[in-house]
Write a protein that binds this DNA or RNA. Structure first.
Length: 186
DNA sequence: AACAGGATGCAA
DNA sequence: TGCATCCTGTTT
C-alpha cells in the first residue's frame, strides 16, 4: 500500500523529517525512486538559503510545508528540496540521492543527477508533494540502518551533522563523510 | 587540480 | 559592479 505523506509529517522539525524521509518513495509522473540520502537546511544556519530571511528565491522555505523547493545552481543543475516546518518557519530537506524504483534508468546519486534523472526543473518549484505531478509516498518500507554525518559540498556550516543516509546503500554519494558517519537511531 | 556554466543575493 | 555559492563533467 502506498500512502501519501501527510502535511503534518512535513510540518515538523527539519532534522526529524530529513531522517524519516529515508526509504520513502518519490514519484514524478510515471517515474519513481526510493530516497536514500538527505540533508537538512533550516532557519539561520549559514548554509541555508533561509539564513538572511525570505528573499524572492527562498521565500517558499518560509511558507506551508509539503511543497517542492527547486532552485537552479551553478548554471546547470537543479536541486530538489521538500519544504518543512510549520508556515512562518524556514526549513527544507535537500534530496541528495535515491535508488531507482520504476521508470528510472539514469543514476540518481547526487542532487543534480537526481533532478536530471527525474526531469525536475524550476517548473516544479512550489508544486505540492501530494499533487498530480509530484508525490511522496510511504509504502511501508523501513531502511535497515541509518547513519548521519556532516553535510556534503558546503563551505559554511560544515560542522553540523545534518546529513542522513541509508547505511551501505550503493546509491549514496561516495564522499569522505561516509567514513566519519555515525549510526542514527529514530 | 582547475575550470566552465549562470542565477541569486549581498557587499562595495 | 564584483564576488561567493547546498554541483558535475571535462580538461590540465
Amino acid at each position: 500500500v502506498r500512502r501519501t505523506l501527510s502535511r503534518a509529517f512535513f510540518a515538523r522539525d527539519t532534522l526529524s523529517v530529513a531522517r524519516e524521509l529515508l526509504g520513502k518513495v518519490l514519484a514524478v509522473g510515471p517515474r519513481a525512486v526510493r530516497i536514500v540520502e538527505t540533508e537538512a537546511y533550516f532557519g539561520t544556519d549559514p548554509a541555508s538559503h533561509s539564513r538572511r530571511g525570505p528573499t524572492p528565491r527562498c521565500a517558499i522555505m518560509f511558507g506551508p510545508p509539503r511543497v517542492a523547493y527547486v532552485y537552479f545552481c551553478y548554471g546547470m543543475h537543479h536541486m530538489l528540496n521538500f519544504v518543512t516546518e510549520p508556515a512562518g518557519r524556514a526549513g527544507a530537506v535537500l534530496i541528495r540521492a535515491a535508488a531507482p524504483a520504476s521508470g528510472v534508468l539514469a543514476p540518481a546519486n547526487g542532487p543534480g543527477r537526481l533532478c536530471k534523472a527525474l526531469g525536475i526543473t524550476l517548473a516544479h518549484n512550489g508544486l505540492s508533494l501530494a499533487g498530480p505531478r509530484l508525490k511522496v509516498l510511504d509504502d511501508g518500507f523501513t531502511p535497515a540502518a541509518v547513519r548521519r554525518s556532516r553535510r556534503v559540498g558546503i563551505r559554511v556550516g560544515v560542522d553540523k551533522p545534518w546529513r542522513f543516509f541509508v547505511a551501505g546503500d550503493p546509491h549514496v554519494s561516495p564522499c569522505p563523510q561516509n567514513k566519519e558517519s555515525k549510526p542514527c537511531r529514530n
